[in-house]
Design a protein around this nucleic acid. Structure first.
Lengths: 207, 207
DNA sequence: AAACTGACTTTTTTACGAATTTGGTCAAAT
DNA sequence: ATTTGACCAAATTCGTAAAAAAGTCAGTTT
């Protein structure tokens, strides 16, 4: 069975990640990725089935980074309110820094290639599970009322997505959002997390 | 100066509204609108400068319907929590029934024609003012803390938009959302309104 | 004069084949 | 096991001509 050097695999993914981040999926060519690595296009096909698989792995790895961040959060002993705020903060930071994940969630709105839709749908499902787990813990610990986890997780996820989109829209068309706009987006997400945790809390707390 | 029969003006707008609702802006032709009215294309240009103006007036009138609904709400003596819930309900209902307004908010995400962006930007600005007024009233009455109205209004508006989008995405691609999905969307919006009003309330209430 | 029309011009969209680019394969080389 | 250049096939871009739609206007009707 073939072993296929891990080093080479990750080199390819790294080069591809940079290209996808800069140019997106369709405008990145296999030749460009190969040239960035000083190798030939055909070599790429020794390691990956096709361009789509490279893209999938690049995005999946960024998704995984976020997911692991949250899984780490799930293992910590923290008040529910804290967890939700940290979740909001991680989500903000990840979508700011993981360019391909960020681009994906944007593209999924109007690029109809199945890859995009599939990857996005997958990510949403995973995110929902993570939020449900946080709520689960909060209910188990008695911090939260016995709410419908699925319903509230969807509510939280969609609202967070809306906040991100609302900020994107404000920045003029194609330009990156300004630091001020990012700061505002983060503040909104944290505030939403607070509203949310207060709303499902058993105690009647105020921040 | 020309008077231009109001009857004819509104007849044209009504025919155009139906066409735009069914086919969207770009796929609706001036000839179709004229034929629906049993008149000639040239006649339309006697009443309207161009196709874009007809579209603007159609959308503006649907926006106005929603705005007047909310302005009516602003004049009622109701608890802040009630007002926010009714706001959420009106928003849900309006976006479900006013097809061109609904289409606009969808198109604004990926149709780059300036008309679309302009009309959407205008609507968002107006919606923000209305939400701010509701918050204003809540602060004045002592029901709400002295929060940053603009900040919270944006938070509320973007979250509501996110809930709508989250529901749209779940329904498979082009089809209309199922009744069940709509019901869920409405429930989410009402719940968000509750979370929100509890969160900004001076009292520590629970529903 | 206000309301409207058919014929007309201009602008935009569509259709489509050729040219080019790109994705993907493979036998041969290292 | 790994890499490559040559090659094919699929997709994209490009130029352009035909079709369709937007928009104009002199002149007619009411």
């Amino acid at each position: 069975m073939e072993k296929k050097s891990d080093k080479k695999l990750s080199d390819i993914l790294q080069a591809a990640r940079r290209r996808f981040a800069k140019q997106g999926l369709s405008k990145t060519t296999m030749n460009e990725i190969a040239e960035d690595l000083g190798t030939s296009k055909a070599a790429l096909y020794y390691y990956f089935k096709d361009k789509e698989q490279i893209y999938r792995e690049v995005v999946a790895s960024e998704q995984q980074q976020f997911i692991e961040l949250i899984q780490g959060l799930l293992e910590r002993k923290l008040p529910l309110a804290e967890k939700l705020k940290i979740y909001a903060d991680h989500r903000f930071t990840s979508f700011r820094d993981l360019v391909n994940l960020s681009k994906l969630s944007f593209d999924s709105l109007f690029r109809f290639r199945p890859v995009i839709q599939d990857l996005m749908k997958e990510f949403k499902k995973k995110e929902l599970v993570l939020i449900e787990k946080i709520l689960e813990q909060g209910i188990a610990s008695g911090e939260a009322r016995n709410i419908d986890k699925r319903f509230y997780a969807e509510l939280f996820a969609s609202s967070m997505a809306g906040l991100r989109l609302g900020s994107l829209r404000k920045s003029e068309s194609d330009k990156d959002p300004s630091p001020a706009s990012l700061k505002n987006q983060r503040a909104q997400m944290l505030t939403l997390a607070e509203l949310f945790s207060n709303g499902i809390s058993r105690k009647r707390s105020r921040v």
